[in-house]
């Protein structure tokens, strides 16, 4: 699979906020049908790194999609490259209903140029029927939904628009065991469809279970990228906590 062109390559990414280098010269890549975990403590820079891919932040470095260099200046650009993001905060407008959130920024319009709310609701019913058949509250604002229901709206938004590259920022943080299992199944399903997924998490076990590879970050820098079958949870933990790659004796030497 290394011979293939990566779906995404982020090379030498850096960004600083007020003198603090939140992300410092990080390079990661992602292949079709692959799940790459991004691990690290809070503040390690994993969310910031990924926000440069989703267009929320503009930093330095080069981004390649399917081997071609791209410029991503805003979330709209990212969406045009079929990069979809499920944010940790879910990024839902609580006062709007599920359909309005799902289509936010990409509304379906009638021929007369007005919002086609009925068509959007019909589409929302279809996709929610697939993702979360129990979902019924189509006319309520999303503030009235449970954590899992809100999560499924955020996931539906990413899936509906044919994501090729999916970024999931702690998708199971607010979920119960049953819903977590649902997300795990969904990830397997999307993987089988050839979608590449960046999964940000600080739960080592979730990453071991769901990911093919993992990139670990600490203090804005990349500790290393490992193949999941080659490592144990202790290896990953020592990368996260001590910043050491497996087999490494001291910080700094490449394995």
């Amino acid at each position: 699979m290394d011979k293939q062109t990566p779906l995404v390559e982020m090379k030498n990414m850096s960004i600083a906020f007020g003198g603090i280098r939140a992300v410092d010269d990080v390079t990661v890549d992602l292949y079709p049908g692959e799940v790459v975990g991004l691990l690290g403590h809070n503040g390690a820079g994993k969310s910031t790194l990924i926000k440069m891919l989703s267009g929320a932040y503009q930093g330095e470095g080069d981004i390649y999609v399917n081997g071609e260099k791209v410029e991503i200046h805003n979330p709209r650009d990212a969406r045009n490259y079929n990069i979809e993001t499920i944010y940790q905060t879910l990024a839902l407008a609580d006062n709007l209903d599920a359909a309005a959130n799902l289509f936010l920024g990409r509304e379906l319009m009638t021929p007369a140029g007005t919002l086609d709310d009925d068509a959007m609701e019909a589409e929302t019913r279809k996709i929610m029927g697939r993702l979360n058949p129990n979902f019924q509250k189509f006319s309520a604002p999303v503030s009235a939904l449970s954590g899992g229901q809100r999560q499924s709206v955020a996931i539906a938004r990413a899936v509906y628009f044919n994501a090729k590259i999916l970024i999931m920022d702690e998708p199971t943080a607010a979920l119960g065991p049953h819903e977590t299992q649902m997300v795990a199944e969904l990830i397997q399903q999307l993987k089988a469809e050839g979608i590449g997924i960046f999964l940000i998490d600080h739960d080592v076990h979730a990453v071991l279970e769901l990911c093919d590879r993992a990139s670990v970050m600490k203090n804005g820098q990349l500790v290393g990228t490992v193949n999941i079958p080659d490592v144990t949870d202790d290896d990953l933990l020592s990368m996260i906590i001590l910043g050491k790659k497996p087999g490494e004796k001291a910080e700094g030497a490449e394995a």
């Binding site: 407008a93 709007l96 919002l115």
Partner: peptide, 25 residues
């Protein structure tokens, strides 16, 4: 307010400005 993108974006921005920006508004 209820039938145009402009109106939809006004309410979305009022509900969650960050989400509105992340949606490309």
């Amino acid at each position: 307010a209820s039938r145009t993108r402009f109106g939809r974006y006004i309410y979305a921005t009022g509900g969650n400005p960050e989400a509105a920006e992340l949606s490309g508004i």
